[in-house]
């Protein structure tokens, strides 16, 4: 770990300005991801701006009937909020399926969205990794890539985004509110926040340097039943092999609408719009769920170690859709 200087931000605007001022500065929230990366010198900020004490830790009702979640709301608090539990149950399920109790107590909403990949080659400074060191190559491509992406990857990088929370939020059409140095704000649909690797895997989001996430807004809960299903190698405390967040709205035996997002398959929470289209208006049947799953993974490509994720994602989606349709 390199030496660094540290300041505690007095306000959101000041925090954004403080980071924008120095190219080697970073925000720190819970620190559960950033500090680990700093110890291994994968992240080497020379200056940290601590935003964990800013008054961005409230969950408020919006005029539209949704919720506005402050960037500093802890993962545990968000999962436990009665409004979230009753109106966005798949968000609670996703949060509780992530990490461990201790980490969730520390992890912030914004830090969770912006946590970096767990690709083991990214974590080892001696290995080629385009995300860590531009142009050095991708050790995972021909290496141990069991955890890696099957959708939206490139020859430059096949890493996945590891968050569970973000997958549920993608299924809920969350919007990210940011504040920039100088006080400007903007709102980014969650689907546009993360970038696919293409030739620049080190650029992971559309945020500018110094642009700070202030809140996440959830629109009013979509009609239908919500289910989050995470598939993993042990009962808890393991990243998703694949996960599916599904909201299925039925009218009679027909599916009115569906929203589906997948985790563990891409560099971003992956909205399965093709599958949603297949389902709209279809009879709620095994066949329709299977077709939807096929549509969702139609473009999927495996890299050897992760080939199994394609059938796994299909099977998981099929039964998750069935579960969501059951009592919808």
């Amino acid at each position: 770990m390199q030496s660094f200087t540290y300041e505690r931000a007095a306000s959101a605007e000041q925090a954004a300005a403080a980071v924008a001022e120095r190219p080697d500065a970073k925000f720190i929230s819970g620190g559960t991801n950033l500090l680990d990366l700093m110890k291994l010198e994968i992240e080497r900020p020379a200056h940290l701006v601590d935003i964990s004490r800013l008054p961005l830790d409230r969950i408020e009702e919006t005029a539209a009937g949704g919720l506005r979640v402050g960037a500093q709301v802890r993962n545990s608090d968000l999962a436990a909020d009665p409004r979230v539990r009753s109106r966005y149950p798949m968000l609670t399920q996703a949060l509780l399926a992530g990490a461990s109790g201790q980490i969730r107590n520390k992890a912030s909403t914004s830090g969770n969205l912006l946590q970096r990949t767990r690709c083991p080659y990214f974590y080892d400074r001696n290995m080629p990794c385009n995300k860590r060191e531009q142009g050095s190559g991708c050790a995972a491509l021909q290496g141990f890539n069991r955890m890696h992406a099957v959708l939206g990857a490139s020859q430059a990088c096949i890493a996945v985004h590891p968050s569970d929370m973000a997958v549920a939020m993608a299924g809920l059409d969350a919007r990210i509110e940011t504040i920039s140095p100088g006080g400007g704000t903007r709102t980014i649909p969650i689907g546009d926040l993360h970038r696919l690797p293409e030739a620049t895997p080190h650029v992971e989001t559309v945020l500018d340097h110094g642009e700070m996430i202030a809140a996440v807004t959830l629109p009013p809960p979509p009609p239908g039943r919500q289910v989050y299903r995470k598939v993993r190698d042990r009962a808890s405390y393991a990243f998703a092999l694949v996960s599916v967040a599904a909201v299925v709205e039925k009218s009679g035996d027909r599916i009115q609408s569906a929203r589906i997002a997948m985790g563990g398959v891409a560099a971003k929470p992956w909205r399965a719009t093709e599958a949603e289209r297949t389902l709209a208006g279809a009879a709620a049947s095994d066949g329709a769920f299977t077709d939807a799953a096929e549509a969702a993974l139609a473009e999927a490509v495996g890299y050897g170690g992760n080939d199994f994720k394609i059938p796994l994602a299909k099977r998981t989606m099929r039964h998750t859709l069935a579960a969501a349709a059951e009592s919808a």
């Binding site: 767990r118 083991p120 001696n126 141990f144 009962a235 808890s236």
Partner: peptide, 24 residues
């Protein structure tokens, strides 16, 4: 996992090397 190209243990921490946790 021993990487056959580089000779290093790839998953060398407790997030990636899984041992049973209470739930298992």
């Amino acid at each position: 996992v021993l990487d056959r190209r580089y000779g290093h243990f790839v998953n060398h921490d407790l997030a990636e090397y899984h041992v049973p946790i209470n739930g298992d």
